[in-house]
Computed example of a mutant assay.
Amino acid sequence: MRLPCSHIFCKRQKTCPCCRKEVKQKKMVHVNKLRKLIGRLEVKCKNAEAGCLVTCPLAHRKGHQDSCPFELMACPNEGCTSRVPRGNLAEHRQNCQHGAHQRCPLGCGATLGPAERASHNCYRELRKAWCQRQERSRTLVLCLLRRMRKVYRSANHIRRQLAQLGELLEEDDALLLGAPQEEAEAPPRRQHWG
Score class of each variant (00 low, 15 high):
Met1Cys: 03
Arg2Phe: 06
Leu3Val: 02
Cys5Thr: 06
Ser6Asn: 04
Ile8Glu: 00
Phe9Ala: 01
Phe9Cys: 04
Cys10Gln: 00
Arg12Gly: 11
Lys14Val: 07
Thr15Asp: 06
Cys16Gly: 04
Pro17Tyr: 14
Cys18Ile: 00
Lys24Met: 13
Lys27Val: 03
Met28Asp: 02
His30Asn: 14
His30Tyr: 12
Asn32Glu: 14
Leu34Tyr: 00
Leu34Trp: 02
Arg35Cys: 05
Arg35Ser: 07
Lys36Met: 13
Leu37Phe: 04
Ile38His: 00
Ile38Met: 08
Arg40Pro: 06
Arg40Asn: 14
Leu41Val: 14
Glu42Leu: 14
Glu42Thr: 11
Cys45His: 09
Lys46Ala: 04
Lys46Trp: 01
Glu49Val: 04
Glu49Asp: 08
Ala50Asn: 08
Cys52Gln: 08
Val54Gly: 10
Cys56Lys: 09
Leu58Gly: 11
Arg61Cys: 07
Lys62Val: 06
His64Glu: 08
Gln65Thr: 12
Asp66Ser: 13
Phe70Val: 12
Glu71Cys: 14
Ala74Cys: 04
Pro76Val: 13
Asn77Tyr: 07
Glu78Cys: 06
Glu78Asn: 14
Cys80Gln: 03
Thr81Ser: 11
Pro85His: 12
Arg86Ser: 15
Asn88Val: 06
Leu89Cys: 05
Glu91Thr: 15
Glu91Tyr: 13
His92Tyr: 12
Arg93Cys: 11
Arg93Asp: 00
Asn95Cys: 05
Cys96Thr: 03
Cys96Val: 05
Gly99Trp: 04
Ala100Pro: 01
Gln102Phe: 00
Cys104Leu: 04
Cys104Asp: 00
Pro105Leu: 04
Ala110Gln: 07
Ala110Tyr: 00
Gly113Cys: 04
Gly113Lys: 07
Glu116Phe: 01
Glu116Cys: 00
Ser119Phe: 00
Leu126Gln: 10
Lys128His: 12
Gln132Ser: 02
Gln134Tyr: 02
Leu145Arg: 12
Arg147Val: 02
Arg147His: 04
Met148Asp: 13
Lys150Ser: 15
Lys150Gly: 07
Tyr152Thr: 14
Arg153Leu: 14
Ala155Asp: 06
Asn156Glu: 11
His157Asp: 10
His157Cys: 06
Arg160Asp: 13
Leu162Pro: 11
Leu162Ala: 15
Leu162Ile: 15
Leu162His: 12
Gln164Trp: 10
Gln164Ala: 15
Leu165Val: 12
Gly166Lys: 13
Leu168Lys: 15
Leu168Tyr: 12
Leu169Cys: 13
Leu169Gly: 01
Glu170Val: 11
Asp172Met: 09
Asp173Ser: 14
Ala174Gln: 09
Leu177Glu: 01
Ala179Pro: 02
Pro180Ser: 03
Gln181Ile: 02
Glu183Asn: 03
Ala184His: 09
Glu185Thr: 00
Pro187Ile: 06
Pro188Leu: 09
Arg190Thr: 10
Arg190Leu: 13
